[in-house]
């Protein structure tokens, strides 16, 4: 600190520019603060809002999980019940190897990408509603 101050004393200090001093921004933060306090205090309204938000998020996650599980759990059963599926060849590679060895990875990523969009949209909606 001292070193910096003495260093400035040698050269003429540039004229300070005019600055606008704001004590409190009258817009967003206050409302955010108020609703956050309300959520924190667990009023009956806040409790209900939070509960329904968690329920939405949970329902969406379950939808994605059930879909994925159905998709993947159907595969062994399909190959078990219809062994002729294993004889199909696509471009010289047998079908099960394409379906199990290559396809799952892009599919999993696509599901994840989609869920990410949904979950972030839910969160934005919640924040918007709370801040209104």
């Amino acid at each position: 600190m001292n070193g910096a101050a003495s260093g400035q004393g040698d050269s003429p200090a540039p004229r300070p520019r005019r600055k606008k001093v704001v004590l409190a921004d009258s817009r967003a933060p206050v409302t955010v603060l108020r609703t956050v306090v309300e959520l924190e205090e667990q009023t009956s309204w806040a409790e209900e809002v939070v509960r329904s938000f968690i329920r939405t998020q949970f329902k969406d996650a379950v939808k994605f999980a059930v879909g994925t599980m159905l998709l993947f759990c159907a595969l062994p059963l399909a190959f078990y019940l219809f062994p002729e599926l294993s004889d199909v060849e696509v471009a010289g590679v047998s079908l099960p190897w394409l379906v199990l060895g290559v396809a799952p990875f892009p599919v999993l990523f696509a599901i994840g990408y989609w869920y990410n969009l949904v979950a972030e949209r839910n969160e934005r909606d919640f924040v918007d509603m709370v801040e209104k």
């Binding site: 955010v32 609703t35 956050v36 959520l39 924190e40 667990q42 806040a46 409790e47 939070v50 938000f53 968690i54 998020q57 969160e123 934005r124 919640f126 924040v127 709370v130």
Partner: peptide
Amino acid sequence: TNRTRLRMHAPDRLGF
């Protein structure tokens, strides 16, 4: 429990 759940699920912007 309710407070913990609020913290776990509230969007990050609310700062819990």
